[in-house]
């Protein structure tokens, strides 16, 4: 163990990593602190109070928006990651084939064009579909989110797959393992870190999306970012900080349990 650590060590890298972690959390700390601010300002401290937590619990708008944001992020990250994994498998570790670059370009297309343009154009397209089919609902928003999460999930998975040696898979195939078995027993486990990274990115970009959501959302589909955007002109109150803090704590507890269970199992 000690020897392995030595091998991988690079001077200053751990310091930079800890610095990044610190820098990433410094604003989050501020945000948590200001959720306990008695004043209605998110930038000027007065005194400690829990009033914004009560107000946030009382605010149907915020509660509904949070629920929709989470639902949307889970669904779109789930499908986005699956589609991205499949596409990544098809566009790596082969000789370049006809149409590969085209496929690559198509997969990454949602990244290439500023969001507002996609938003306006999707708006036109969805309006037309609604007209023709009469179907309404949150499905459109899920579709739109899934589309732009794909490239974010695709990139890490592709990076993982590229240069992944074919040796193991070939060995399995040589032992007459059927292709699906090769995939689930050999390729997939090797891919997991890439998939985890991709899914996390997909989740985050869906959770944070403003512009496409603003244009595509129908009645009753206000997400948290849209709610916050609307609040800017009237002044953002620490209610939003309170909600963010609750989400933060909930996700920490949730993930901590997950890791504890996982650790036990591996032991």
């Amino acid at each position: 163990m000690a020897k392995r650590f030595d091998l991988r060590r690079q001077t200053g890298f751990s310091e930079i990593a800890w610095f990044c972690l610190f820098a990433l959390y410094a604003p989050i700390l501020m945000l948590v602190v200001f959720s306990f601010n008695d004043n209605r300002s998110v930038v000027k401290w007065t005194e400690f109070s829990l009033r914004w937590y009560y107000e946030a619990f009382d605010n149907d708008g915020i509660r509904a928006a949070t629920a929709i944001s989470l639902k949307l992020a889970f669904v779109s990250a789930f499908f986005g990651t699956i589609f991205a994994t499949m596409a990544a498998l098809a566009t790596t570790r082969t000789k370049p084939y006809k149409g590969m670059y085209l496929a690559y370009a198509v997969i990454n297309q949602p990244l290439m064009i500023p969001e507002i343009v996609t938003a306006i154009a999707s708006l036109s397209l969805f309006a037309l579909i609604k007209q023709l089919t009469g179907v309404t609902g949150i499905g459109y928003l899920m579709l739109a989110h899934t589309v732009f999460t794909i490239p974010f999930a695709y990139m890490p998975i592709r990076a993982r797959l590229e240069d992944m040696t074919l040796t193991l898979e070939q060995a399995a195939a040589d032992l007459y393992a059927p292709p699906t078995k090769v995939f689930w027993k050999v390729t997939f486990p090797l891919l997991i870190p890439g998939i985890v990274a991709g899914a996390m990115l997909a989740f985050v970009v869906s959770l944070d999306d403003v512009i496409i959501t603003l244009m595509v959302a129908g009645p009753g589909e206000t997400t948290l970012p849209i709610f916050i955007l609307g609040a800017i002109r009237r002044g953002i109150t620490p209610e939003i900080n309170a909600v963010s803090t609750i989400l933060l704590v909930a996700s920490i507890v949730f993930v901590a349990i997950f890791f504890l269970v996982q650790k036990k199992r591996t032991k």
Binding site: L24, Y25, P27, I28, L31, V42, M200, L201, F203, V204, L207, D208, V210, L224, P225, I228, L229, I232, I236, I240, N241, S244, L247, L248, S251, I252
Partner: peptide
């Protein structure tokens, strides 16, 4: 990634 679960504006 956890900090990024909080909205960008906030």
């Amino acid at each position: 990634t956890l900090p990024f679960w909080t909205n960008l504006l906030i």
